Simulated assay, not measured.
Amino acid sequence: MDPNVIFLNSFLDVSEETFNKLASISTFKKIEKGVQIDRPGEIPSKIYMLVSGIIRAYLSSETGKEFNKNFFMPFSFVGSLTALIKKAPSKLTYETLTACKVYEVNFEEITKLCSEDIHISNLYSKVLERIFIRYEERQLEFISMDATERYLKLRKKISRVDDLIPQYHIASYLSITPVQLSRIRKKIDGN
C-alpha cells in the first residue's frame, strides 16, 4: 500500500476517492538542504506533507540568535499553521536540514475542499487534533523534564539525531547551550 495513504489512514480511514482529491491539489517536490520554505514576515500559503528528510522551525531574535521550536520528521505536516489560519505573516522560519521530499498543498485549496467534502473536513480535524496533542506534549516536556530527559526523549523520537542534526540546533531545541549538550552526551555515552 502507498505509504502516503498509510500515513493519512493513521488519522482516519481515507477512501481512494478522498486520497485522489487530495492528490489532485498536491505537488510532489524535492527540496535541497538549507532551503527556507517559509520565512518570517511573509504570509504563507502552503502546507507540506514531509515524506523524507528533516525540517526545522525556528524563531530568530533581533540579534540573530535562533531558537529551534520543532524538528519535523517523515511523515508529518509542516507549515506555519497559525499564520496560515490567520492569513498573517509568519513569525517562524521553516528550513530543510537535509534534502527533503514533500507534497506541497495550497492551504486555501485544502480549506475549500473541507467545505465541500465531509471526509476531507474530518481528516483535517484529526490532523489538527494530532498537531495540538504534539504541541501540548512538547510544552509538558519543558515543565516536567530536565535537559537530560528531554535529550533522551529526542534521541528516542529521532534515531541517530546526533548524526542528522548539528549539535547547536539540538541544543537550541532543548533550550540549553552546546556546551551543556556536550556534557549531557558525554555523561550518557560514557565518553
Results as ranks from 00 to 15, higher is better:
112 K>G: 08
111 T>F: 04
136 E>A: 09
73 M>F: 02
21 K>Y: 03
54 I>K: 02
28 F>T: 15
73 M>W: 00
188 I>Q: 03
128 L>D: 03
18 T>H: 01
175 S>C: 05
69 K>S: 07
85 I>S: 06
124 Y>M: 13
78 V>R: 04
124 Y>R: 11
37 I>Y: 04
111 T>D: 11
148 T>E: 15
60 S>Q: 06
112 K>A: 13
25 I>R: 07
11 F>A: 13
149 E>D: 14
129 E>S: 12
51 V>F: 02
157 K>S: 14
101 K>F: 06
164 L>M: 10
103 Y>H: 14
91 K>P: 00
58 Y>R: 04
85 I>V: 15
52 S>H: 04
46 K>Q: 07
27 T>W: 00
117 D>T: 04
101 K>E: 15
172 S>W: 01
172 S>G: 05
94 Y>E: 05
54 I>V: 12
139 Q>M: 11
110 I>Q: 06
151 Y>E: 14
150 R>H: 06
95 E>Q: 14
66 E>Y: 03
183 R>I: 08
87 K>F: 00
137 E>Q: 12
182 S>L: 13
7 F>A: 13
160 R>T: 01
161 V>M: 05
178 P>Q: 14
112 K>Y: 03
70 N>L: 05
189 D>N: 10
185 R>W: 02
50 L>Q: 03
20 N>T: 07
40 P>G: 09
82 T>D: 14
164 L>G: 03
63 T>K: 12
105 V>R: 04
106 N>K: 08
175 S>P: 00
116 E>Y: 00
149 E>L: 14
22 L>E: 06
28 F>S: 15
169 H>A: 10
9 N>A: 03
55 I>A: 08
109 E>D: 12
10 S>E: 15
29 K>Y: 05
152 L>F: 00
96 T>H: 10
61 S>D: 09
10 S>V: 08
100 C>R: 07
14 V>W: 00
134 R>G: 13
149 E>F: 04
114 C>D: 12
10 S>R: 11
14 V>A: 09
100 C>E: 09
185 R>T: 10
12 L>Q: 13
64 G>E: 12
83 A>V: 05
153 K>W: 05
101 K>G: 13
68 N>K: 02
91 K>F: 04
36 Q>D: 14
37 I>G: 07
136 E>P: 00
173 Y>C: 08
50 L>P: 00
20 N>P: 01
171 A>Q: 02
79 G>A: 06
41 G>R: 03
118 I>G: 02
169 H>F: 09
2 D>Q: 10
66 E>F: 01
167 Q>P: 02
153 K>V: 11
78 V>Y: 00
50 L>A: 08
178 P>H: 09
56 R>W: 01
189 D>P: 00
103 Y>M: 14
32 E>Q: 15
146 D>T: 04
106 N>E: 10
107 F>L: 10
89 P>L: 10
72 F>Q: 01
145 M>P: 02
29 K>H: 07
16 E>K: 10
125 S>A: 10
118 I>E: 15
166 P>V: 08
94 Y>A: 08
85 I>Q: 11
131 I>K: 08
111 T>R: 14
148 T>K: 15
146 D>E: 09
100 C>A: 15
105 V>Q: 07
20 N>A: 13
16 E>I: 12
120 I>Y: 01
152 L>G: 03
56 R>S: 09
5 V>F: 00
12 L>E: 07
40 P>Y: 09
48 Y>N: 09
81 L>N: 04
141 E>R: 11
142 F>K: 14
11 F>L: 12
184 I>K: 08
178 P>T: 11
110 I>W: 06
43 I>Q: 05
82 T>R: 09
69 K>Q: 09
